[in-house]
Design a protein around this nucleic acid. Structure first.
Lengths: 203, 203
DNA sequence: TTTACATTCTAAACAGTGTTTAGTAATCTC
DNA sequence: GAGATTACTAAACACTGTTTAGAATGTAAA
């Protein structure tokens, strides 16, 4: 029964993660189990532990892929005018959540029971996303200080993230589809306009 | 061993829900189990099934209490000027999430595996919250139509909800505490100012 | 070629989970 | 007191993540 080195450790990791992604997409995170993933790739559950330290570890590696994919799509939007870029980021972010609801949920809702600490790379990636937003905002408001830019980026992005969450959980109660795009565009527009207005009145 | 009618069914329900809330607050939702709740109130796990149809049912009843408590706190804010009311709602909402992180997580992240449908009362309560927001917005913009009010309320509240989520997951990366309040105030201000500006330019 | 070692892999066990069921024990009704 | 009803639980079932002991296979040396 023991097939010796039919797959390298790397191939096995990839195989397991792909199977897990498929299971996640099709059945949801409640159906993600070591035995199911193992069965899907023709190995026993115990074999997974030669490649992952735990199911938790596997989930975080899944999350690493999801986040990398999301950031890639954001990067692929290319160079745009600051306001247009912020809108494009927002639309891309929310569209990603809608396209991969289970992966997105796992990324933002998965918490390890023991150490409540989240992997470093996740926080670093989110930090980089915020930096990119701050660059856009700095173009719009060259006179704004770092603290204000940081705060504005976080406030604006909280809104975008909130739309993604509520849309995913069907908590927006908007009869016709496609209103999310309009919401995001007005979210960015109103926020930036309100920001500009308040900066002008401050001088 | 069988203590006959030491507690009525209602008292048993209350007992179990209180114990579950305590367990949830102290240990997190990963440690919520029928056996643990039962042990906490001195009954067997099977007894819980005479009062709840499943652990899922118990969780939703927990969520019902959490939401009722949240809405009560929002109601207790009383009558205020529209803009002040919206800010007060936002601050109260996010403060609630910070005070009861586990209850809040369960309310917004718990999904039943089988029917992905969420209880009706939850959606109705959220609908009522949105209605209240729309009333405030209507005061600020008497000329705005129902659709615009609905969309604006949802967009604004997505932002507030987003701050609550990201704050809860420590994804805001803001060194000093207390910045959340400032974020929420500027979120509401910028959005309302941007909205007014856009309405004025439309006429 | 045969023996020894190393690696790959799995079956089985362990402790936990939600849930069901069969049966015990206490109370109520007649 | 006898019988029916209710309250309750122990035990079982099927599942979970994880560990462990050992079998099967490959490699290398003698």
């Amino acid at each position: 029964m023991a097939r010796r080195r039919e797959h390298s450790r790397e191939a096995l990791t990839e195989l397991a993660l792909c199977a897990a992604e498929r299971l996640l997409d099709e059945q949801g995170m409640a159906e993600l189990s070591t035995r199911r993933i193992a069965a899907e790739i023709g190995y026993s559950a115990a074999t997974l532990y030669s490649v992952f330290s735990s199911l938790d570890d596997l989930c975080w590696q899944l999350n690493a892929r999801t986040l990398a994919q999301l950031l890639d799509e954001l990067d692929a939007l290319g160079e745009l005018e600051p306001r247009a870029a912020l809108k494009a980021y927002a639309l891309c972010y929310v569209a990603f959540a809608a396209r991969w609801p289970e992966r997105w949920s796992l990324l933002f809702e998965h918490r390890t029971p023991e150490t409540l600490q989240v992997p470093v790379w996740l926080n670093e990636s989110i930090g980089r996303l915020f930096s990119q937003l701050e660059l856009c905002l700095a173009e719009l408001a060259p006179e704004a200080g770092a603290t204000e830019l940081a705060l504005t980026a976080r406030t604006l992005w909280s809104g975008v993230h909130g739309v993604a969450v509520l849309q995913l959980r069907n908590k927006l109660f908007l009869p016709p589809q496609g209103k999310q795009e309009q919401m995001l565009v007005t979210l960015v527009d109103y926020h930036l306009d309100g920001w500009r207005l308040n900066r002008e009145s401050r001088t």
